[in-house]
Simulated assay, not measured.
Amino acid sequence: MQTLEYEASWDKALPSIDREKIEAIFQETSLSGNQAVAFTPLWQAMNYKGELLVTVLVHNFTVNQFSFSKETILYIEHNDVLAAHEFTIPALTLEAETSMPWAFIFPVESMKAPPTLEDGRLEFINAF
């Protein structure tokens, strides 16, 4: 059965309104849909450096641990790829059948076009 976990710093700092939203979305998306690892969008924003921040629920639907090591992830809006970046995230290791919120930061140089921040989603460049 899929469980929701929080990385320690998220667990301490996450406002209760965001936690409630994450938990509600998790309840709606805790089934695999035949994907090993999947993303459910939560929100996206631009920071003061012009970087794109995309917050998602990362779902590991497999029976094995999963970590991000040189994983190329695409940011897509309206079927257009607007950013691509390779992520290695030692702090993000998902146990089997676990979901966790995470913010992916796309550097300015990884963006191909300015995002509208509407209907954005993340995808692996090579699906599992």
Rank of each mutant, 00 (worst) to 15 (best):
T88S: 15
A38H: 09
E28G: 05
S32K: 09
K21S: 14
A36Y: 09
F124G: 01
F26C: 00
L42A: 05
F128M: 13
M46N: 05
F26E: 01
Q35E: 15
L31W: 14
I22T: 05
F104K: 02
A24C: 03
F39A: 05
M111L: 15
Q44A: 13
Q2S: 12
I105T: 14
N64E: 09
Y75M: 02
P114G: 13
S32V: 11
F104D: 00
N126V: 15
A96I: 05
E5D: 06
K112R: 12
A45C: 09
M46I: 15
E109T: 05
V81M: 11
Q44T: 15
A91I: 10
I125E: 11
I76C: 06
V56C: 13
F61T: 04
L53F: 03
V81G: 08
A38T: 12
V37N: 06
I125G: 05
V81S: 06
N79M: 10
Y75N: 10
G50C: 12
E77T: 11
L94G: 02
S67H: 00
T93I: 15
N126D: 13
F128C: 08
E71G: 01
L31K: 12
S32M: 12
S32P: 11
E71T: 01
V54T: 07
M46R: 10
L42R: 02
F87N: 01
I76T: 12
P41N: 13
W102C: 01
M111S: 09
A96Y: 08
R121D: 03
E5Q: 11
T98V: 14
R19T: 04
F61W: 12
Q27K: 13
S67W: 08
P15K: 11
E86N: 04
Q44N: 13
L52C: 02
L42T: 02
F104R: 00
L122R: 02
V56N: 01
R19G: 01
F68Q: 00
F128S: 15
V108M: 08
S110F: 03
T40D: 09
N79W: 10
A91K: 14
D18F: 12
L31Q: 15
V56E: 03
Y48H: 10
F39H: 06
D11K: 12
H85P: 05
I73R: 01
L52E: 04
T98Q: 09
S30F: 11
P41A: 09
W102V: 00
L122S: 02
L57N: 00
S110G: 04
I76M: 06
L94T: 04
A96S: 14
T55H: 04
E23S: 03
N126L: 13
S67A: 09
I17N: 10
T98N: 02
L57E: 00
Q65H: 10
P90R: 03
R19D: 04
I25A: 12
E118V: 13
T3G: 08
Q65I: 11
M46G: 14
S67N: 09
V108K: 03
A84I: 04
D18V: 10
M46F: 15
P107I: 02
I89T: 06
L74E: 07
A96L: 08
Q65W: 12
A91P: 03
T116H: 14
Q27T: 06
V54Q: 06
Q27H: 06
V37K: 02
F26K: 08
V54R: 05
Y75S: 07
L14C: 07
V37M: 05
D80S: 12
K49H: 11
E95M: 07
T40A: 08
A96T: 05
I105A: 08
P15E: 01
F66L: 10
V54M: 05
P101Y: 03
A83T: 09
